[in-house]
C-alpha cells in the first residue's frame, strides 16, 4: 500500500462512517423484525434487543395455520400475478405505436399517460369505492387487478416506450414485409429484445402490488378474498395480540420479495435509475 492509498483511505473515512451509521439505522428495525419472529409475546415486550431464550418456529407454524393463511397467500399471488401480466401486456401494446410509429399526436397521448403518475388516486378513494361497488368489483381479485394495473400502466408505458424508441427500424421491417401482423411483431420481435425493460416493469409492479395494504382495505371485506397484508392487520387488536405470530406472518409475507431482491438487486436498482430518466 502506497502513501497515496493511505491518504485516499483517510480522506474517505468520514464518508465511510456516515454510510456505516446509516446502514446501522437501516439494520436495527430489520434485526428487531427478524428476532421477534422467534420470540414469545412476553419476550417481545421485554428485552427487545436480546436474542430469544429458546429459538422456536412456533410463531411461523401459528401464523401459517391462523385462519386461512395459505388462502391469503394464494390471493396475493393471484392478484400480483394478474396485475403484472395485465400491466405488461396493456402497456406494451400502448408503448409500441407511441414509440415506433411516426405519429403526430404521440406526445399528447404520452402526456396523458404521464398524468396518471401524478394523480394521487388515494384522495379519490371514496368515489373509487362506490365506483367499484357499482361495477360489482368489491370483494373481487379482478377488481384489485384492474385498479393496480391502472395505477402502474403510466410508469410501465414510459419505461417500455423509452426502451423501444432506440431499437433499429430494420428490426420489424423485414417481418412487416413478410406480412406479419403488428401484434405478432410486438410480442414476438420487439418485447423479446427489450427483456431488461420487461423485467423492470414486472419487478416494480410486483413489489408495489404484493406489499399494498390500502386498496384491499377499501375493496375487500370477505375473508376469502383478503390478501396477506390486509389479513395480517386483522391478527392485531382482537383481544390479546400474539405479536410473535404477527411478526412471523410479516416475515413469511416478505419472503417472495426478499428472495427476488437478493437475486435481482442490481436490476432493481437500475430500474429506479431508469425512472430517474423521467424528464
Amino acid at each position: 500500500m502506497t502513501n497515496l492509498d493511505v491518504a485516499q483511505r483517510i480522506r474517505q473515512l468520514p464518508g465511510w462512517i456516515v454510510l456505516a451509521l446509516w446502514a446501522l439505522v437501516v439494520a436495527v428495525p430489520l434485526y428487531i423484525l427478524i428476532v421477534s419472529c422467534f420470540k414469545t409475546t412476553a419476550e417481545i415486550y421485554g428485552d427487545k434487543f436480546g436474542l430469544p431464550t429458546n429459538w422456536t418456529l412456533d410463531n411461523f407454524a401459528n401464523a401459517w395455520t391462523q385462519a386461512q393463511f395459505a388462502r391469503y397467500m394464494w390471493n396475493s399471488f393471484a392478484v400480483t400475478g394478474g396485475a403484472v401480466i395485465l400491466t405488461l401486456v396493456v402497456s406494451a401494446m400502448a408503448a409500441f405505436p407511441l414509440s415506433r410509429y411516426q405519429l403526430g399526436w404521440s406526445s399528447p397521448v404520452l402526456a396523458f399517460f404521464l398524468a396518471g403518475v401524478m394523480l394521487p388516486i388515494r384522495l379519490a378513494s371514496v368515489e373509487l369505492f362506490t365506483l367499484m361497488k357499482t361495477l360489482d368489483l368489491l370483494d373481487s381479485r379482478l377488481g384489485l387487478i384492474f385498479v393496480y394495473s391502472a395505477i402502474r400502466i403510466p410508469f410501465a408505458v414510459f419505461i417500455l416506450a423509452n426502451f423501444m424508441r432506440v431499437l433499429p427500424k430494420e428490426l420489424e421491417e423485414a417481418a412487416r414485409l413478410d406480412g406479419a401482423k403488428e401484434w405478432r411483431i410486438l410480442f414476438r420481435i420487439i418485447l423479446p429484445t427489450i427483456k431488461p425493460a420487461v423485467a423492470i416493469v414486472a419487478i416494480f409492479t410486483a413489489i408495489a402490488v404484493w406489499n399494498d395494504f390500502f386498496f384491499p382495505l377499501i375493496f375487500i371485506f370477505d375473508d376469502d378474498y383478503k390478501t396477506v397484508p390486509l389479513a395480517i392487520t386483522t391478527f392485531i387488536g382482537q383481544f390479546r395480540t400474539d405479536w410473535g405470530m404477527v411478526f412471523a406472518a410479516l416475515a413469511i409475507s416478505m419472503m417472495p420479495v426478499l428472495v427476488m431482491y437478493l437475486l435481482l438487486a442490481r436490476q432493481i436498482r437500475e430500474g429506479v435509475g431508469a425512472t430517474g430518466g423521467l424528464k
Binding site: 406489499n211 399494498d212 395494504f213 392487520t233 410479516l250 431482491y261
Partner: peptide
C-alpha cells in the same frame, strides 16, 4: 443494504 428498506411493506 440501503435499498433493502424499499422492499419492506409499509405495514411491517
Amino acid at each position: 443494504i440501503l435499498f433493502a428498506t424499499y422492499m419492506v411493506p409499509m405495514i411491517a
